[in-house]
Design a protein around this nucleic acid. Structure first.
Lengths: 112, 112
DNA sequence: CTCTTATCTGAATAATTGTTCATATATTTA
DNA sequence: TAAATATATGAACAATTATTCAGATAAGAG
């Protein structure tokens, strides 16, 4: 027999309706990407304009290296895309989802 | 003189338009809360129904203690609220912002 | 070709964080 | 009052992660 459940029926019903662990994990992963100050700064900056690594380093007061690392993470998460022009790599937001997510997070933060 | 900037005007313009560090930090904090599998499971479960600690522990296959810790974090972040009825504490989502954020994150995760 | 510049990368470090375990608090029941 | 139950809490531990530093690529300039 299982543990005593206070609201057995309700709890089992909810458990049956739960999304798959894989999907829930992926959802958490998306949010994790947004959950870092440096990356949020990058996202907000890219919301304003396409920018290269050293621009972003200047804008966010970070090192080129730190920004490059974070851009790799953002790119792997398919939140930004890049194009190369000579020595310079230009980054921009991949789609409107990113902007929507940012804006709703922003609204919530305002309501603190 | 400052560092050489590749796109001096553009970078300075964007930097001037940046949100305050405090606000950007708060935005990142909101997302950080969503960026954990256990908490995402809790949020999704509470989207379906008001639930108590042990219900959530059962639903998420976690210990009561782990859930209690996470609920404290969610409550401090003003994402959930609680009411006490005897020995039992019932948790629910605080507002629709939480649901909206979850759903957009969900959409993006689907598009992987 | 050589030098400089822009970006990237890997390893090391420091800091943060989620879970567990033991225990505490609060409330109901016997 | 004493026992049982639901939840909360603090410390310790393990795992993850962001940054730095040194150095590696890649591309243009001289």
């Amino acid at each position: 027999m299982g543990k005593d459940l206070i609201h057995e029926n309700l709890a089992k019903q909810v458990k049956n309706k739960m999304l798959s662990d894989d999907l829930l994990f992926d959802i958490a992963e998306v949010f994790k990407i947004f959950g870092d100050s440096t990356r949020i700064k990058i996202i907000y900056a890219l919301k304003l304009s396409e920018l290269c690594v050293s621009d972003l380093a200047f804008i966010t007061n970070s090192s080129d290296s730190a920004i490059s690392h974070q851009l790799r993470i953002l790119k792997q998460a398919k939140l930004v895309k890049s194009r190369k022009e000579g020595k310079v790599v230009y980054y921009s937001l991949k789609d409107d989802h990113v902007i929507k997510l940012f804006e709703i997070g922003c609204e919530h933060a305002h309501e603190l």
